[in-house]
């Protein structure tokens, strides 16, 4: 019922709201599709190690968000309200919890939790950090798309979880699903509060379009790389 994209607190995105929603819808759909494809393949050969490997770039996303959010606060935070600094820090803490929880789930499946960026997550990570360099709002715009993309993967993951009984993964992603609503809403609120100029809006759109084309790729069956310990 509640639509976090309609969060209050600023009007800096008014002229580009429709385009932003289109980008978000597109990435959700692509991610949903990629996740469904992954589980179609997985159904044929349900190997927990494959599931663990599929989760690995997502564990990396969680810890990379921690690094990125902290750097965002350090570099640009004092241009934001104190409440927004607190909420970004809270998001960062939750992303750390997600890294821990997804990590445990990966280990329970016999996989390895990444401690360096996995090759399949490299384009995603590079793009995000490049955005942080370019503009104070660009990384937030990019991760807002990336966060939203994950929402396309939840339902197919939960359904597959029922078929295959990977309850721990489902439990972890139920919590992440709740927190992502916060992260998506917070990102949108910050963008609309602090975007003032056309150049701000252009940078936001550039970051979002770029992430739209990357975020879903680590959900496909082809992206899975099984690393040996």
């Amino acid at each position: 019922m509640v639509d976090v994209r309609r969060v209050r607190g600023g009007d800096g995105l008014q002229e580009i709201n429709a385009e932003i929603d289109e980008i978000l819808d597109a990435v959700v759909e692509k991610t949903r599709h990629a996740t469904v494809e992954f589980f179609v393949a997985y159904d044929k050969n349900p190997d927990p190690k494959v599931l663990a490997a599929w989760l690995a770039p997502r564990a990396w996303r969680e810890i990379d968000y921690v690094f990125l959010l902290n750097e965002q606060i350090r570099r640009y935070g004092l241009n934001f309200s104190r409440t927004h600094i607190t909420l970004l820090a809270k998001q960062s803490f939750q992303e750390a919890e997600h890294y821990e929880a997804v990590g445990k789930a990966i280990e329970s499946l016999g996989g390895i939790v990444p401690t360096i960026v996995p090759a399949s997550a490299k384009p995603w990570s590079d793009f995000l950090w490049d955005c942080l360099e370019r503009h104070p709002l660009a990384a937030i715009a990019a991760w807002n798309v990336s966060e939203t993309s994950a929402s396309g993967s939840f339902e197919p993951t939960f359904e597959a979880g029922e078929r295959h009984g990977f309850d721990e993964v489902v439990r972890v992603y139920r919590q992440i699903e709740t927190d992502e609503k916060f992260h998506v809403g917070l990102g949108r609120q910050i963008l609309s509060r602090y975007a003032k100029t056309d150049q701000d809006r252009e940078e936001i759109l550039r970051a979002m379009r770029g992430m739209r084309d990357i975020a879903w790729t680590t959900f496909t069956p082809e992206s899975v790389v099984i690393e040996n310990a």
Binding site: M1, V2, D3, V4, R6, V7, R8, G9, T83, L87, K90, T178, D179, K181, F182, G185, L186, Q189
Partner: peptide, 24 residues
């Protein structure tokens, strides 16, 4: 979020007048 942004703590009100302090 505990900040009125995520909407996940939604509860139904059966009577009374809520004072809405959320953003969503």
């Amino acid at each position: 979020c505990t900040a009125g942004i995520c909407g996940t703590c939604l509860v139904k009100v059966l009577a009374g007048v809520p004072q809405h302090n959320d953003d969503v």
